[in-house]
Amino acid sequence: MKNSLKYSTVFLLLFLTTPEYLYSQSGDQLFLSNCRACHTVGGGKLVGPDLKDVTTRRTEQWLLSFIKSSQTLINSGDKDAVALFNEYNKVQMPDQNLSEAQIKDILAYITKESQSASTTNVVDKGESIKHPVIGKSLAEANRDDINTGKEYFEGTIRFANGGPSCISCHNVDHADMISGGLFAIDLTLTVSRLGPTGVHAMITNPGFPAMKTSFQNNSITPEEAFYLTAFLMKANSDSEFGVVKNSSGFLFNTGLMGSAFLFIVFGGIWWDRKRKSVNHDIFKRQIKSK
């Protein structure tokens, strides 16, 4: 009781001292909720490129049209856009439902950040992602953590905020798990593509429209995201080394053999059944009109 009172006081203080943080969508907030899943400013590549100094590299007009609809720009044959698209594994940047003013806010934020941040090119092994409570990094995740991640993924454990389980839309090839949904991309090798940090960012702060809508009001907690990323890393490495057993052929073959067995057994049981008309032979002989 005492504790909860303390927490609520802290919360109340936060609430009162940083009203902007909660009420206005300033440039940094917009960046966090819309871009951070795939981009950093000086933090190195994630899904998409590091955006440090992007405002100096490109014109504002180009950035505006790319952010609004990257595909339109690519389809129109813009050289830079096509090169960028090819460089980043043809991962499509989703169209952003942002007003011009909002985009400008974001760009202003990036310009500001670019001045302070220094470019680093780190090999992402997930060291930077830490468990929010016990402080363990993803690289240190053990079997239990991975299992917890798996259980979150397949919905054995519900997400704390009630979001839908990953398996309803995504598939991951895993020996102990049934096939997942086909509505969204297969996540088996997604860590190779995005890196653990990218995946983690995508989970905590979804960038793609469908996922964004799904988790808008029931976001995944950092703790859950940690376990899920751990699981996806494991699934990724297992799959890369060919550990995953593909069971779809097994199912088909067992089904085939099982039905053959049933046909034989029931054929035997019903062998004595009346199978055709008692007049069959007589009728077969009769001459039929054309």
């Binding site: 055709k276 008309s277 007049n279």
Partner: peptide, 9 residues
């Protein structure tokens, strides 16, 4: 009902 007479019966 396998023992039913059919119409041809």
């Amino acid at each position: 009902n396998p023992h039913l007479p059919v119409l041809d019966d």
